[in-house]
Design a protein around this nucleic acid. Structure first.
Lengths: 155, 155
DNA sequence: TACTTAGTTCTGCAAATTCAGAACCATGTA
DNA sequence: TACATGGTTCTGAATTTGCAGAACTAAGTA
């Protein structure tokens, strides 16, 4: 498997970004490689050699990414190797999930609001506002998602 | 500064959540304390004693949270102490930022798409779809934010 | 049977993170 | 001046994370 210098650079940039999203360096670079590389399907060994990561690290990362539905693999008849590829069609729902996750603390905040002393009125109102806002955004997200699917279906 | 057992429990739960959002344990618990506790304004010493965290850890955490606009402090005449409080009014824009951040990879993905071999048509279309979706969500976010501010202004 | 190959699991290390404790600074007070 | 207080900075220790390397398993092959 060959990647150009430019591709390597971009893989690293994507790597840093995905690390920021909570993935390990190895996971992040594997995602990057499968997004950038010319070949869509790569074996464990190819990934290992292209990225210079140990076999075990690649294996662990791959299995995490399989569990989280970011990768899938295909097989070929009479070939024991697995060919891993980015499950890119699923990424839309991933974006959704990720956005939703950034709003999931809502429930805890509501708990906090309920448990709070009632004597700090101004603060409690501000807190409630924040919770309402998160709810508002979340509810409109469902709409957005639906709208998108519709507009995609039409085009 | 006194907190009930129930409050302590909730602070820990919020702590775990905020850790998941990328904050350190100390930062996370300070945020929690200032959201849950009956007193809105606490000194470094009070925070330190209530949470059983060292002075230096509290100090570092506070300063990070001040920089990131999640805390502010007020002072009182003839009193050198700083009274820290949750800057809760700013949290709405924080939520916004957080959601936006989860979509900021869009630019990198576009770069990837442009740099990709053109021969993997299906994949490239799927990638473009994803980027378009992220753009779609992002653009509607501005609307959402505006709408919210308007509806809040009216009520 | 022994050998090969693809993938998995285990062990331990190296780096990074986070914090405690102590030393320290800055400002006010006796 | 010495002392007290609020806050800061530094150093090292304890955890945690992430991974390399080696041992291992499973399944096919000579």
């Amino acid at each position: 498997m060959n990647v150009t210098v430019a591709q390597k650079r971009l893989i690293e940039k994507l790597g840093v970004f995905f690390e920021g999203q909570g993935r390990t360096p190895a996971e992040a670079r594997i995602i990057g490689l499968l997004l950038v590389g010319d070949q869509l399907e790569l074996t464990l060994e190819e990934i290992q050699q292209t990225l210079s990561i140990s076999k075990s690290a690649v294996n662990n990362a791959i299995n995490v990414l399989l569990l989280t539905q970011q990768l899938e693999y295909v097989t070929k008849p009479g070939d024991r190797k697995k060919y891993y590829r980015s499950k890119i069609e699923q990424w839309m729902s991933h974006v959704e999930q990720h956005v939703e996750k950034s709003l999931e603390g809502r429930t805890l905040l509501r708990e906090a609001l309920e448990q709070r002393t009632k004597s700090t009125k101004e603060f409690n109102v501000a807190l409630k506002d924040m919770i309402d806002f998160m709810e508002f955004v979340q509810s409109h997200h469902l709409d957005l998602f639906a709208k998108w699917k519709k507009s995609k279906g039409r085009s």
